[in-house]
């Protein structure tokens, strides 16, 4: 664990780390970072999310699986209020981040998105240089010092395991990178503002197997420091990288449990059907 991360973790989580090695009831000690109660979302007439309750604890990887159109991406985008960019969207229910309801009038959306980073389905670097892509977040949040920015850029690129590939060409366009590299750059861009949570919306669906493998490695590495909520199409991926898995179907949360349980011993027949590939 890096000195940096060590510094960022308080004693409480250290304790919980120790606990997790021996005992099982981790949740009791771990802090709940996201709380969702009776969340409903409509796009115009379409009822996309139908009453979801879902707690997310600190430093877990939560995978959300389900067939296309089941509302998993919508749910993810609700967590940093990106869903509001969709015209005609209506939201009811409660989502609290660190105990504060994010839909409150007074809640600062930019602050939320500063704490909760997002990686998108398609790599979406800005049409700027590699350096500028990573420096973008810190810059808009008021960090102007060139030396500091240099350091943040290097650090973030290292954390995303792409530093060695790009360190000699930080000034070239981000579009000169391969798809997989672009996605890792986007992760670096997201890490540059040191979020607490990273939301990932099918981050490997547009990538080849080799790049997918690298990103999964990276996710395993990142979960030491961050909470990660990942939407995925790929059940093997969910099984490989997540601690807990939520199965969505038609806007409803069918089952939410430890990943092991979901895949080996699902309690709902629909979950079983989906996992066995009977639909979706």
């Amino acid at each position: 664990m890096s000195t940096l991360t060590a510094k960022r973790l308080n004693i409480e989580t250290k304790l919980s780390d120790d606990l997790s090695k021996g005992l099982r009831p981790v949740e009791k000690v771990k802090k709940m970072i996201y709380e969702t109660n009776q969340l409903h979302i409509w796009y115009g007439e379409t009822h996309a999310i139908k009453g979801i309750d879902l707690p997310v604890y600190e430093k877990e990887v939560v995978a959300i699986i389900g067939p296309s159109g089941c509302g998993k991406s919508t749910y993810l985008k609700t967590l940093n209020r990106m869903v509001e960019l969709v015209p005609d969207v209506r939201i009811s229910g409660k989502v609290a981040y660190n105990g504060k309801s994010i839909f409150d009038e007074s809640y600062d959306v930019e602050e939320l998105r500063l704490r909760v980073g997002m990686v998108f389905q398609k790599p979406n670097p800005f049409p700027k240089s590699i350096y500028e892509n990573v420096a973008y977040g810190p810059r808009i949040h008021g960090i102007r010092n060139k030396g500091v920015l240099d350091e943040i850029v290097e650090q973030s690129l290292r954390k995303a395991y792409i530093w060695d590939e790009v360190k000699d060409r930080l000034d070239t366009s981000a579009y000169s990178l391969s798809g997989g590299q672009q996605q890792r750059l986007c992760i670096a861009r997201c890490l540059a503002i040191e979020p607490e949570v990273i939301l990932m919306d099918e981050p490997t669906s547009a990538l080849d197997p080799k790049s997918t493998f690298k990103i999964e490695e990276l996710i395993r590495e990142l979960k030491e420091t961050y909470s990660i909520i990942i939407v995925t199409h790929n059940m093997q991926q969910a099984a490989r990288i997540s601690d807990k898995t939520a199965f969505f179907l038609d806007g409803e949360l069918i089952e939410y449990n430890e990943t092991n349980n979901i895949f080996n011993n699902p309690s709902d027949s629909r979950t079983e059907d989906y996992i066995l590939g009977r639909f979706g």
Binding site: S2, K7, H141, G142, V148, I152, Y161, E221
Partner: peptide, 27 residues
């Protein structure tokens, strides 16, 4: 294989604190 380029070696920078400091410009 990862151990070689693990971020541990780099200077710890507290970005959060820096951002917190820059809050005034955000206002």
């Amino acid at each position: 294989m990862k151990k070689n380029n693990h971020p541990t070696k780099t200077n710890p920078l507290n970005v959060k604190e820096l951002i917190e400091k820059g809050k005034k410009t955000r206002k």
